[in-house]
């Protein structure tokens, strides 16, 4: 019984991490112009777990995280949900590519995926609002996301190792 509860807690862990990242990402830090180019922390979280433990962060959870993000950020509801499941889908289907690759390769792949997601989001928002939007805040936001990826990944890897000892679940 206790062990089952433990397992459930561990399974909810990546989603919880995404929510914490979301709340911290929305904190006002009073830097000029920051809020417009704030990095997309949930993208990093979903990307990381889609590579290393997709069993703990299935597509439906990525979708739910996106919905909560949309509700909190005030973005059109469903927008981040779509972006996150798209990123999740791409990464999971290409998992074999990521396996055993150096960090530089994974980071480059993340750069491509983050910028593509940013582009898709930009196009979708323009379609929904019916007006053109300055692309630069979106580009800077994604560049900041890419720049912070190594740090966030380091933190996640530390937590991953501490909370989820290898052997409890064997990655597929």
């Amino acid at each position: 019984m206790l062990q089952r509860m433990d397992t459930i807690a561990r399974n909810l862990f990546p989603a919880g991490l995404a929510l914490v990242a979301l709340l911290f990402g929305a904190t006002p830090i009073y830097l000029p112009g920051y809020s417009a180019i704030a990095p997309n922390f949930t993208l990093m979280v979903v990307f990381y777990w889609a590579i290393y433990r997709p069993d703990l962060l299935p597509t439906a959870v990525a979708f739910a995280i996106g919905l909560v993000q949309d509700a909190l950020m005030g973005t059109p509801i469903g927008l981040n949900a779509l972006l996150l499941i798209a990123v999740h889908g791409v990464v999971v289907t290409q998992r074999r590519f990521f396996q055993g690759k150096t960090f530089a390769v994974v980071w480059s792949a993340f750069t491509v995926i983050a910028l593509s997601a940013g582009l898709l989001g930009w196009v979708l928002v323009m379609a929904l609002v019916g007006a053109t939007i300055n692309p630069w805040p979106g580009i800077f936001s994604m560049l900041l996301t890419v720049a912070l990826y190594p740090f966030v990944t380091w933190v996640q890897a530390r937590i991953h190792g501490a909370v989820l000892p290898a052997g409890l679940h064997v990655p597929r």
């Binding site: 929305a26 006002p28 809020s35 997309n40 950020m73 005030g74 930009w122 805040p137 979106g138 936001s141």
Partner: peptide, 14 residues
């Protein structure tokens, strides 16, 4: 103001 949300596409605060 408890959150400065929105990111690249929305200008709003909570």
């Amino acid at each position: 103001v408890i959150a400065d949300s929105g990111g690249a596409f929305v200008r709003s605060v909570i």
